[in-house]
Design a protein around this nucleic acid. Structure first.
Lengths: 195, 195
DNA sequence: TTTTATTGATTGACCAATCAATAAAAAATA
DNA sequence: TATTTTTTATTGATTGGTCAATCAATAAAA
């Protein structure tokens, strides 16, 4: 009973199922069959839409990247003053969906893949550079260029580090205190009090 | 031609080969055969000494943990004043061997595994907690307890974040500037100038 | 004779990718 | 309108290959 226009729906479902499967079984034991079953389709269909397994994995990574980018972009669009732009970037990275265990697992698998897969590495560098350049641009309107550059790298690293540590901690992550930690470090370094 | 006392030698070689193989092929395509060949032995011998693949992987993670612990411990032992203890922890985490591409890949695979493997998660939490508690202890002798706790988490996150970002960057990582970045953030937050 | 070290063959399972087959919807044609 | 054709969606079987784990066999040392 084929309904038309299923392709985008299936693609989304398969990518979402890939994220879940990575979390449940890990990259080492990940199978197309398992992914397809989670998406409610046959393994053949997954191959039909994505060709090969690594293409599905790359598509999943692109989705992670796009979703995070959107979280940040919406918050940036609603910000006017430079301070708020910095906050927007931090809060975008720490949005609740970025702490979903399945999403955390997928991101870490992404980092892992970037070590030996060229395309994965290229994609991850897009994230890395975008985060830093976003931060530096916003900080340049608050402080001098040299400080902005240095503090930009520090903040980017702090975001990644806090994210990874809070993700690993037991219990559900307290996003608000994570945000507060990074914000106080950044604005503290600028000699500003945190609003 | 069996020489006696080979067990520790083979174990070390197999663990080292595992680190190399993870970097070269990634967890997904990692095979016992490949690991064994890199160690110069048969796959049968790898099973003989480690039982199953996941035991070999866990042993590899324990080695990563132990090696890092040693790097920090030697530097801590040579430190007398609190400031130097903080520096020792930072420098231990940023020792050149921690930036070896093979070691980076293995650590990231470790993070990845911790998302779905209980023992891997337990082991990684040992690292996480040890780093933070080391930092907080050292910082408590420089500042008040509350600041030490907060700055301890910030510094630990900063160490992880800088390490992961520099590892991903192209070109060989400049460990000295990475150390300088973290040190200036920590001592800056304490209102101290960096020596 | 027992212990330690080691290999290579074997087994049983699993899996990625392909493909033929099926069927519904849409388009084209009569 | 009725029909044929094409396009889109989907499955399940198949295939060829790979891999983890086991085990019997071999051999040197104790």
């Amino acid at each position: 009973m084929p309904k038309l226009g299923m392709e985008p729906i299936r693609r989304k479902a398969l990518i979402s199922a890939t994220i879940d499967a990575i979390h449940a079984k890990g990259m080492a034991r990940l199978t197309m069959n398992d992914i397809a079953r989670r998406a409610g389709v046959s393994a053949g269909l997954a191959h039909h839409y994505f060709g090969a397994k690594d293409q599905l994995l790359l598509a999943t990574m692109r989705t992670l990247l796009a979703d995070l980018g959107e979280e940040i972009q919406t918050r940036l669009a609603a910000s006017t003053i430079p301070q708020d732009r910095v906050r927007a970037i931090i809060r975008g990275n720490f949005s609740t969906c970025q702490f979903r265990p399945e999403v955390v697992s997928a991101w870490l698998a992404f980092y892992d893949a970037a070590q030996h897969d060229h395309e994965a590495r290229r994609l991850l560098r897009v994230y890395t550079r975008r985060l830093q350049s976003n931060l530096v641009h916003a900080l340049q309107e608050i402080t001098d260029r040299a400080t902005a550059e240095r503090l930009g790298e520090t903040t980017a690293a702090l975001i990644d580090g806090v994210w990874i540590r809070r993700s690993l901690a037991s219990g559900d992550p307290d996003t608000e205190s994570a945000i507060a930690l990074v914000e106080s470090a950044v604005f503290g370094a600028l000699g500003m009090s945190v609003a």
